[in-house]
């Protein structure tokens, strides 16, 4: 199903996007333990805005793991992994069309499904590598600074972010299949996923937001791993994949 040669080509082709994503995530990961003491003093001493829940602040400052989770899983990782998913996905198929390489690729002994599946596998692999590697970097630097971090739950919550980001990637790839220009596809995908974040702004609909679920709040606070959400996302991911394959198969080059 997956073509190793094409998979490798995709890794090479997306290496710059990967390294930029990993660099930014890595910097965001490293500054969390480095700035913990400073942030704690600052947040503890300033007058808080009336819009900030003092309970949230005290929760964040109650322990280093809570602080790290709030800054990493619930903020930096969720936001930037979503962005990386869009950046990686927007050129996945549109790039072949826009740069005129699709006829060359599709004249090789590969089925269209195989091409699509291999591209998705490579993109999701790179996304996962950036997320997991930067999370490990956070754990490592935290340990070097002498902070104890619960690595298991931390990695588990990063996996939730990863699956959510993979869904965003698959959705963006569908748009990239339909719109034959990577930049336009990226803009449309950003608008689409921006709209998908709207439920997250309302208390009654917050749980329907993919970005809210990616933070794995209930898992961190109550220890309930979001199996149901992950199964639902896998189902949505499958449907997005099949939709992308359908459109990719229809195209003439």
């Amino acid at each position: 199903m997956i073509s190793p040669a094409l998979f490798f080509k995709e890794l090479v082709e997306n290496r710059i996007k990967f390294w930029i994503s990993f660099f930014i995530l890595g910097v965001l990961a490293v500054i969390i333990p480095l700035l913990y003491a400073f942030a704690g003093n600052m947040l503890g001493s300033i007058n808080l805005s009336p819009y900030v829940n003092p309970g949230e602040i005290s929760f964040i400052l109650s322990s280093y793991p809570n602080y790290a989770w709030s800054q990493w899983t619930a903020k930096n990782l969720t936001q930037f992994a979503s962005l990386a998913a869009i950046v990686l996905g927007m050129g996945a198929l549109a790039g072949e069309t826009a740069y005129g390489t699709a006829p060359f690729l599709l004249s090789k002994p590969l089925t269209r499904r195989q091409v699509y599946a291999t591209k998705m596998a490579a993109g999701i692999f790179l996304l996962g590598l950036a997320i997991v590697a930067s999370t490990f970097l956070l754990i490592l630097v935290s340990a070097m600074k002498g902070y104890t971090l619960q690595a298991g739950p931390f990695i588990a919550s990063a996996i939730v972010v990863y699956v959510g980001a993979a869904v965003i990637y698959l959705g963006t790839a569908v748009i990239s299949t339909i719109i034959p220009d990577p930049v336009k596809a990226g803009v449309v995908a950003a608008i689409f996923w921006g709209l998908a974040s709207v439920p997250g702004y309302f208390r009654g609909t917050v749980q329907y937001s993919i970005f809210y679920q990616m933070k794995a709040i209930r898992y961190w606070l109550q220890g309930e791993f979001p199996w149901l959400v992950l199964i639902l996302w896998l189902g949505i991911g499958f449907l997005l994949f099949e939709t992308g394959v359908y459109y990719w198969r229809q195209k003439d080059f």
């Binding site: 073509s3 190793p4 040669a5 094409l6 490798f8 080509k9 090479v12 082709e13 740069y99 005129g100 390489t101 006829p103 060359f104 004249s107 090789k108 002994p109 590969l110």
Partner: peptide, 22 residues
Amino acid sequence: GEETRMYGYMNVHQAVRFCSGL
């Protein structure tokens, strides 16, 4: 194809290796 467009970032050896793998 007419005016074949291949992957410009590859060098010739890489393009050959890519195709041979298919």
